[in-house]
Amino acid sequence: MTKLQVAIDLLNTKDALALAEKVAPYVDIIELGTPLIKSEGVSVIRAMKDAFPDKQVFADFKTADTGELEAGLAFDAGADFVTILGSVDDATIKGAVKAANERNKGVVVDTIGVKDRVQRAKEVSAFGVKFVELHAGLDEQALDGYSVQVLIDEAKSAGVPVSIAGGVNKDTIKAVKESGAVVAVAGGAIYGAEDPAAAAKELRDILNA
């Protein structure tokens, strides 16, 4: 069963908690976006975990160095997952995995900016990460001709556990599920909707169908 992850790219804890309250019944993983964590610090992680202890909290650190240290900061603040950039040195990812293993938590490698996402996904999976996020960032999505189908095709050929982030919505989530992705990440399709709860429920219903 493909899990549903909501990416909360808001800028303050109050708004993030309010959105999470609306969509929590329909999502498995609550992601705290990089801008949110940079704005509010690790305290937003603890606030979210305290409010929703039955949900997995995903800290989108996008760590580029000191993997063990930064992963430890996220986990000790209540995160279940933390992201490390796939473009970094292998030692950074391995350090984060060490911190995760010591706490029974998980590292997710984010392939934003990686040219060969499939090859890198195969490489880093050998280090013990939970899954690899095939991720097209907002800037890449804004380019002419971008389609989430690129990520869907990559997921089919990766051969390792992956999530898909970058254009997941009600029109594409069925194909994301059929690609074999273990997690579908929806951001703007939920938080940008007029009714975020209804949007999250619609995505959940499609995954459950």
Rank of each mutant, 00 (worst) to 15 (best):
V97A: 06
P25T: 09
V108E: 03
D153R: 12
L138N: 14
G95N: 05
L17G: 05
E202Q: 15
D195P: 02
A24F: 05
Q141W: 01
G166I: 08
K38Q: 13
D76K: 12
V162H: 01
A155D: 05
I190E: 02
N12G: 12
I93T: 10
D50S: 14
L85N: 13
V150Y: 13
R120L: 11
A51V: 09
Q141V: 09
F127P: 05
T66C: 13
A79R: 00
P53W: 10
K49S: 12
A181V: 10
A181G: 09
H135L: 09
N169A: 13
L143T: 15
G106T: 12
D60E: 13
K115W: 11
A165M: 07
N101I: 04
A189L: 06
A197W: 03
E178C: 09
T13D: 06
T34I: 11
L4D: 04
A79M: 07
G137R: 08
E70M: 13
A74V: 04
E178R: 10
G187F: 01
V148F: 10
E140I: 14
G137C: 10
G187S: 03
L85T: 04
K38M: 14
D28C: 10
K170T: 13
D50N: 15
V129K: 03
A51Y: 11
F81N: 07
A24T: 12
E123R: 11
D90F: 00
K14I: 12
E202G: 03
A18R: 14
A51T: 08
V132F: 06
A71K: 02
F52N: 05
V129N: 02
F61T: 08
G145R: 10
A175D: 15
D80T: 04
I45S: 01
V23W: 01
T66R: 14
D90C: 07
K55D: 10
A91R: 14
Y26T: 06
N104C: 05
V132Y: 02
A74E: 07
D139W: 03
G72C: 06
F61P: 01
V27I: 13
K170Y: 01
Q5C: 11
A16E: 00
T34R: 08
V27Q: 02
F81T: 08
A99T: 06
T66A: 14
E123G: 04
A198K: 15
G113L: 14
L4P: 10
L151D: 01
Y26A: 08
L19D: 00
A59K: 00
A155Q: 05
G145C: 08
V57C: 06
D110H: 04
D80M: 02
A71L: 03
